[in-house]
Design a protein around this nucleic acid. Sequence first.
DNA 1: TTGCTCCTCACGTCACGTGAGGTGGC
DNA 2: TTGCTCCTCACGTCACGTGAGGTGGC
Lengths: 128, 128
Amino acid sequence: MSDREAVTHTIGELSREFGCTPRALRYYEALELLSPSRRGKHRVYSYRDRARLRLILRGKRLRLRLEEIRQILELYEPGRTRPQDEVTLDKYREQLVALEAQRQDVDDAITELVSACDVIERRLRTPT
Amino acid sequence: MSDREAVTHTIGELSREFGCTPRALRYYEALELLSPSRRGKHRVYSYRDRARLRLILRGKRLRLRLEEIRQILELYEPGRTRPQDEVTLDKYREQLVALEAQRQDVDDAITELVSACDVIERRLRTPT
DNA sequence: TTGCTCCTCACGTCACGTGAGGTGGC
DNA sequence: TTGCTCCTCACGTCACGTGAGGTGGC
């Protein structure tokens, strides 16, 4: 067993390292995204759990839903094969379409807000 | 009483016209964003209610929270005055900052997704 | 009588936040 | 004994979606 595999973490350590709350880690466990072992009642996170958490948070940055992240994690369990890569690629491309729509949305909102601000500013400048 | 003031709407008409569900209109009422009168138990929406709904949906396009929308609607009840305009302007500017952060977020996610797709595509092209 | 629209609960969704109350080892 | 970190419920948040079961007028 290499050193790397022997390293374990508490829930506090991991949440501090990745900037999330312990509650979030427990929630990921409830959704079966993580399954740390126990020492008594306390959770013990292995090197592999830590790697999975990194992937989970990456998925969140990509704005995937936890359920989608769970499916992707499942795919990468035994060893990568082409069909698994293709499934992941499909999910990513779908998400890309969704994100581009979202960007358009936000851009529209910004445009609308800027002109709304203009209207009010103009009104404030007109004498009473 | 002008024609315009005499026009009323059912919940079904309004939700169809604005592309939202009846449930949403009832929810806005529960939050006191709308307060239609009643004919028996049925809701009757006046011209003014309709105008408020338009403002609500505009706020949603601007990605404001319903509670914030409620505050803005309150400001415009009796007649506009400078302080009210200034409060609205402040809210809008805050929201603009939030939206710009969100756009950056989405852009980052898109960039990350595109390169994640690249990695997988490259792997798929390499022979087994 | 059948359809349609409307009504009021009230639970479900999503990703946690936030106490409450308790345990265990330094 | 005091602090600290951990634990398990379990309710709250936000903006509705989704039945369930019932009413009223054409």
